[in-house]
């Protein structure tokens, strides 16, 4: 039918641009990782044999996991708190949450350098209280990466969970209370299970975000605490080893897609239970 052809025409420019400027470039960096005269997965075998690489892969996973868990622990109650406040307070708190999110991540990491550095706010504060005798090296550590990344992604988790909480029928809580559930129980037994899909979506964003983060590990981690993204940049630009960078690129893409898929599968399970078929 004519209508269909016209509709396809509207999708054409975008599709062509994506093929030319995303898929083709991706193929061109990934192709050499599999071909060294003939097809080989040697480069990947090499990558996974090297304990240095495995260390970075493990660190990336570990930090992503820790950051996600901290964000959930801090973010879910905060979102719940926001959902209970009056409209006015709530929009103020939303602004407070969104402001860091919309601020450049260089500035956000810079703030943590100021706080965690040798002559930073935290060290001088502790020194002035005589809690420590000499400055502690907090910066350029996994700890610094974790705190900086939590700072980066906590707002995302809060807003995602808040969005789900807003869609929960207020009658449900009252229904739970009429059935004898107390305040805490109505949260853990009614609210929490209903916002699990939201928590999962938020966690996925935080997890994949940390997994591929570049700015924060670069600025707060230093050379000793590389993660996948910083390693890719170093391989390509400092060492000029483009094939290795391609290997890391594919690993990052595959891991990201895999993590998304896993989260989606789990979230779907909960969706089926928690939502109307025709909602």
């Amino acid at each position: 039918m004519k209508l269909k052809r016209n509709t396809m025409l509207l999708l054409l420019p975008g599709t062509v641009l994506l093929i030319l400027f995303l898929f083709l470039p991706l193929l061109s960096i990934l192709f050499p990782t599999f071909f060294n005269e003939a097809f080989t997965i040697g480069k990947y075998v090499e990558f996974f044999k090297d304990s240095y690489n495995l260390g970075i892969l493990w660190r990336t996973f570990k930090i992503s996991m820790i950051v996600t868990i901290i964000c959930v622990i801090l973010g879910v109650p905060t979102a719940y708190f926001m959902s209970l406040t009056s409209k006015r307070t709530r929009s103020l708190l939303l602004a407070v949450t969104l402001f860091p999110l919309l601020t450049n991540s260089v500035i956000r990491s810079f703030a943590w350098i100021t706080i965690l550095g040798k002559n930073g706010v935290l060290n001088s504060f502790l020194l002035s209280l005589n809690i420590i005798k000499e400055p502690v090296g907090l910066l350029y550590s996994e700890f610094a990466i974790i705190i900086g990344t939590v700072y980066l992604f906590l707002p995302i988790l809060i807003t995602t969970v808040l969005g789900v909480l807003d869609n929960i029928d207020g009658d449900l809580i009252e229904a739970a209370q009429t059935l004898g559930a107390n305040y805490f129980k109505s949260f853990t037994k009614v609210i929490l299970p209903l916002c699990i899909p939201g928590i999962l979506v938020g966690s996925m964003l935080v997890f994949t975000g940390t997994l591929t983060a570049y700015t924060t590990p670069q600025m707060l981690g230093g050379n000793k605490n590389m993660m996948l993204a910083t390693m890719l940049y170093q391989e390509a630009s400092a060492l000029g080893n483009w094939t290795n960078a391609g290997v890391i690129a594919l690993i990052m893409i595959v891991v990201t897609l895999l993590v998304m898929q896993i989260f989606n599968i789990i979230a779907n399970q909960f969706d089926k239970r928690g939502e109307d078929e025709n909602a």
Binding site: L22, P25, I29, A229, I253, T256
Partner: peptide, 17 residues
Amino acid sequence: SPTFVPGIVIGFALFQF
């Protein structure tokens, strides 16, 4: 799809290609 590809990978691929 650009959201499924890490930003650093997009930058690298565009730079190289």
